[in-house]
Amino acid sequence: MAELHVNGLNVAYDISGDGPPVLMLHGFPQTRAMWDPIVPSLEQRFTVVRADLRGYGATDKPAEVSEYSFRAMAADQVALMQELGFPQFHAVGHDRGARTVHRMALDHPQAVLSICLMDIVPTHLLLDQLTQQVARAYYHWFFLSQPAPFPERMIQADPDHYFESCLLGWGASQIRDFDPRLLEQYRTAWRDPETIRGMCNDYRAALDVDFDLDAQDLDRQITCPALILYGADGAMARAFDIPGTWRARCTDMRAAGIPGGHFFPDTAPKETSKAILEFLSET
């Protein structure tokens, strides 16, 4: 692990490979370790940077909810890449990492060469047009965003039970589908009370900060090439036409379903790697 102080905090990252730079950002409730099975197929042709988002893993965890917007998270990662000598780069994100990459493409279009968003619909759309089906599947948005310390105390009673229920709760996964080595790294991270607080603040900021920021940018488009990947058997694919939610928001978009549910990068790493590599090679 390496670490750099950028944008007012220490960001943990790993870097490997050689070639054009690719930034890879994880989602909830994971860490940059989620990309370990995918990196080997990319690093032969690309320089791959995997970083922990603020509040997650080994990256710093600010105190205030307002510091957890996707705008702030995107600024962290752009600053990291610039410090590493990459003023322009490709960006890949899953879940919260994908929401960070979406905001990055809007706030820093000069830095982002292409984006890959995995298993999300736009944040504003999900919250503004919330359905019973989505609310039931994605209840954690509203549990984690409750005022502190309520969700933190509930989760700290048994972090493994709670977060593993999240890994299995969004379609087509069993605990045996996850690499035991990666699971242990996730568990080490999410057992930390400060990480639990950081993840709750991430979700609080989505409702308190990001919704309004996204409302201001509803008419803006992503101008770089975009790949939309989604779990073909996941909760989002059952509730939305995922490519359709992004089509008007992108000037150059392609999409594909990957076998499995929300956590298909963990459960189908070969298929995920192939899709990313083909897209990056084309762009």
Rank of each mutant, 00 (worst) to 15 (best):
V112R: 03
L113H: 05
S114T: 05
S114N: 01
L117I: 06
L117P: 11
V121W: 03
H124D: 08
L125A: 04
L127D: 05
Q133P: 08
V134N: 06
V134D: 08
Y138P: 04
H140E: 12
W141S: 05
F143C: 05
F143E: 05
L144G: 07
L144V: 11
R153D: 12
M154S: 04
I155Y: 08
I155V: 13
Q156L: 15
D158K: 09
H161F: 14
F163S: 01
E164L: 09
S165V: 00
C166Q: 14
L167M: 11
A172I: 04
Q174P: 03
R176M: 11
D177Q: 05
D177F: 08
D177N: 07
F178V: 13
F178Y: 12
F178E: 13
D179R: 08
Y186W: 09
R187N: 10
A189T: 03
A189P: 00
R191A: 01
R191Y: 06
D192I: 02
R197M: 02
M199Q: 12
C200N: 12
C200V: 09
D202E: 03
D202N: 03
Y203E: 00
Y203H: 00
R204M: 00
L207Y: 00
D214S: 08
A215L: 13
Q216A: 15
D217T: 11
R220C: 11
I222K: 05
I228L: 10
I228H: 10
Y230T: 02
G231D: 02
A232Y: 09
A232I: 07
G234W: 06
M236H: 12
M236E: 03
M236R: 04
A237C: 07
F240C: 10
F240P: 00
D241V: 05
I242D: 09
I242A: 10
P243N: 02
T245C: 10
